[in-house]
Design a binder for these strands. Sequence first.
DNA 1: GGCACCCGTAAGCGATGCTTCATCCATCCC
DNA 2: GGGATGGATGAAGCATCGCTTACGGGTGCC
Lengths: 321, 321
Amino acid sequence: MGRMLDLSRLRALHAVSVHGSVAGAAAALGYTPSAVSQQIAKLERETRTTLLERRGRGVALTEEARHLAETAQELLSIVERAETTLEERRGQPGGLLRVAAFASAARGLMPGALADLARRHPALDVRLTEVDPHLSVDLVARGVTDLAVAHDWDIAPLPAPEGVEQAVIGDDRCDLVVPQDHPFTRRAVIRRADLGGERWVCQPPGRVCHDWLMRTLRAAGFEPDIAHVAEENHTIVALVAAGLGVAVVPRLGTGALPPGAVAVPLEPGPVRRLYAVWRTGAARRPAITEAVRTLREHWAYAAPLPGDLPSVRGGAGAVRQ
Amino acid sequence: MGRMLDLSRLRALHAVSVHGSVAGAAAALGYTPSAVSQQIAKLERETRTTLLERRGRGVALTEEARHLAETAQELLSIVERAETTLEERRGQPGGLLRVAAFASAARGLMPGALADLARRHPALDVRLTEVDPHLSVDLVARGVTDLAVAHDWDIAPLPAPEGVEQAVIGDDRCDLVVPQDHPFTRRAVIRRADLGGERWVCQPPGRVCHDWLMRTLRAAGFEPDIAHVAEENHTIVALVAAGLGVAVVPRLGTGALPPGAVAVPLEPGPVRRLYAVWRTGAARRPAITEAVRTLREHWAYAAPLPGDLPSVRGGAGAVRQ
DNA sequence: GGCACCCGTAAGCGATGCTTCATCCATCCC
DNA sequence: GGGATGGATGAAGCATCGCTTACGGGTGCC
């Protein structure tokens, strides 16, 4: 007697309400759009209510659907709380832990940390997704992911929506990367006032590295000369190694510098602070606390400490996790 | 990705918690015990927690299971509220309406009322179960049924647990049924003081009719002479028609008197008051309000009104609904 | 000690729910 | 306007799920 509102269908409706489209909901739930569409069609049949109406190319929720999605939200948060206290009573991390991280953390920090976590807690099913940095906090708040590794920049603080908590993992610093024959390689430290007259290799506008560079150089009185633009840090470093310019590159996730490129400390350089972010409702979940603990541990072990100087010499020797 | 607490499994656990046994839960949910057992076994696997332990011949819930059953209760009540408001917004009664009634109401009142209800509201799926009168209120409170037709007796008031509401449907009165050659048939009305020296046909001890008879006769100074005992009112009336004694019989659900039996008004006779009982959470559900309205309507139409005298002459002519 | 009761497990089968493929509709762009 | 794109939905197929029946094991009662 399937005579009752079904939680998975309500979850589908809720996802549509949150993401604004069937396709978005499907992506978030790990289904095809067709599956979500069928679920909601069944929900409509069971409740004898119209929930979705086509609006242009997408769909819009009816009044009843909005109300139903709201109670679905309520139900889902109760379920999450129940799962949390259940896991808490067991003490052992377990269940599904969906983790999101921005690109360089996904490359530089997560592999070791998550492998460690999975090794120590076999009952835990960890799944990583690489996401845009400025999306991660919102993804956590909306319940798409359970834990996110986010960062702010000294010029753009991390948003803190209702219902999420955060903890600092550590600070990631940036170096100036220059070709090996560059005069800076003979200097112990570079200051902002020294940066005039260089040709720059940089990320596209809108990315934090780009914005920091423009802002800093202009504040020091220079008009930046952006000679080359690339998305990936690896590409940027390769361009520098080829002698095409200099770049500001974060230590995390950059990996070993290729022959021909050398990292030089920049004082004061841009600093981004890494955070772990999770929902307050799951704060006491052992999987969360363990994951955060492991991230901080691996940061301390693998990443350069705040006052730590990297090896100035580049090339195959200077490997970073 | 079946990675979340499932509502139907939680419902199974909750039912076990309420009924105290897997078999009882299965009966309440309309499943076999095996199904419930498997559901809970899966819930145990998913949560990696022991929920049920064998205790003697039955089962006992662990601490975690009790806690989980509690949140299940919370979830189920939210779901019921959501279903109610959903139906309320539609305005039309619909969905599943589980109705319980005691035997004579199930026979004398429900067939007409429920048929009417089903005819006027095709979206409504009404299901009737006959239950013991003193169980019905509890069944509603525990969510096993949505609406109950219950009654109290002038000597035993209806219990009113937390979270249920009730409304009066009407009063059911009792007649004295005697063989057609009995001297009482020439009397307009019988009083309690007239009842001495009769041989009685009665329900078994513990039933309300029996208790009322013993109590009333003893209060009037007679020791009742119970000559024949039967469960069913039909049987009792048949025994009376055969001249084997007299009986006190409620009007509701007795049906036509067979040839040889005659009903005589008894003043003051036992009166039972019929109630409709439902959970407060579903009070505004159209299916509930419509069903209650229909019951009262059919009572007024089909059942003898409080001051109404039945036809004293029995036989095939005196038909009651 | 036999019997009744209750819970769990195994096998089987229908129903459910997902995927893929195809269609339809609205919008965007040329 | 016409073609291309993106999104939603329907039909068919197939795996999985969850129920039922049938059986075995353990407990309490007579």
